[in-house]
Design a protein around this nucleic acid. Structure first.
Lengths: 217, 217
DNA sequence: CATTTTCGTGAACCAATATTCACACTTCCT
DNA sequence: AGGAAGTGTGAATATTGGTTCACGAAAATG
């Protein structure tokens, strides 16, 4: 009908794209289905975006800016390592609840290969990687972190746990997998955050000494 | 032409399928390409397997039996928790080196959704989930594990770290991501295993007490 | 108000690919 | 050896899905 698209519609298109890429993968998502979900025609997708790849890039940038915003708030606020970790965990948990399909899309992206994978990893992970590494190195210098480990490994393991937390929250496969560990007593998000913090606290601070050791039974 | 397939050829077909599913995903892998890689015609795929789904299931079962074998050896051998953890880490590291495409295929599988995801998670993860949970609960009863945390969470976090380790070893995206943490000094597998064990050891054994605490600066 | 430009539409086109099937070659049986 | 049964082949078929484009409707222009 010729009327120009509103800002809300453009947003709707990107969200429809994210949902589709999240559900069916970069290759599996269909442009026709995306257009239908966004209540526009396929033609308009190709007016605004050169092709499927270009559209996907737009969806990704749209999502990343929301994520960066959520994390920046925590980084500005906290300075003690464990409080920082707690803040990040909380912020990511909220993001999972607000935008589950974004997380699912990130997960789909991890199946890329070759140069494509490198470029995407750089774009998506560079922010948090540098953020965590700098923070953790600083904490070690301040004495808030054990000194017998390379801080880069800490940042890496920390991020590994956070990624799995997000996937376990949003992706069907990882949800089903988590259910296997839950058994009869299901976990709630608060409980999960609390236990992960306990786990991290000891991994962060405890150092093996020759004085402290348990019986060798 | 017309000669019956040898056992080696049947193996070759399954490996070609695994490589294809690993590279392009369940949906993206093409039967024609699989046949070409396995040096057989498409027709034979449909003689041995009803359809693509059936063939995929055969590939999965083939791979899972190899994985179970690798893990069973460790479970039978070790009984002390940290030695067990070290054995599992080592065994999975070896498996990654020997069969990287199998790990990549597992990763692709995690993008499934709905009932499919549940069924696959059950099939793939149930073995390790039960294994780790039982082992860790036992270790806690024996006093090898801190008592202030639910053992199920330990098993879960432990497996989370192991999954990420495997993906970081085999999948392009996760390799690129790990490189961001490595910086200029790349890590070798031994170093990684060692650092992960240190990380786990403190998380496993350290308990917060009111006596020990650091300055609040 | 007439004309031009911009924008959205969706049927049509085309490339990719899962699946089938008539054929040919091998093996087995008598 | 001769025929029957079994097995692999790959061109042909049908379907799916990305992309294009001629059309019509809305805004902009004068």
């Amino acid at each position: 009908m010729g009327k120009k698209l509103t800002e809300a519609q453009r947003e709707q298109i990107l969200e429809a794209g994210i949902a589709a890429f999240a559900e069916h993968g970069l290759h599996g998502a269909g442009m026709a289905a995306i257009a239908r979900d966004a209540h526009i025609s396929v033609g308009v997708l190709y007016k605004y975006y050169a092709d499927k790849e270009d559209f996907f890039q737009a969806c990704l940038r749209h999502s990343l800016s929301a994520l960066e915003e959520a994390l920046a708030a925590v980084t500005a606020r906290e300075d003690k390592l464990l409080r920082y970790a707690a803040g990040i965990i909380r912020a990511l948990g909220d993001f999972c609840r607000d935008h589950p399909s974004h997380i699912r899309m990130y997960h789909q992206i991890t199946t890329a290969s070759g140069d494509r994978a490198r470029a995407l990893a750089e774009e998506i992970e560079a922010v948090t990687a540098r953020l965590y590494t700098a923070y953790i190195a600083e904490a070690q210098a301040q004495g808030d972190l054990r000194r017998d480990m390379d801080p880069r490994f800490f940042a890496f393991f920390f991020d590994n746990l956070l990624m799995m937390l997000q996937f376990s929250c949003c992706c069907d496969y990882y949800r089903a997998r988590m259910a296997l560990y839950e058994g009869e007593g299901p976990w709630n998000p608060e409980r999960m955050e609390e236990e992960l913090l306990k786990f991290l606290e000891s991994a962060f601070t405890w150092e093996r000494t020759d004085i402290v050791h348990r019986d060798e039974r």
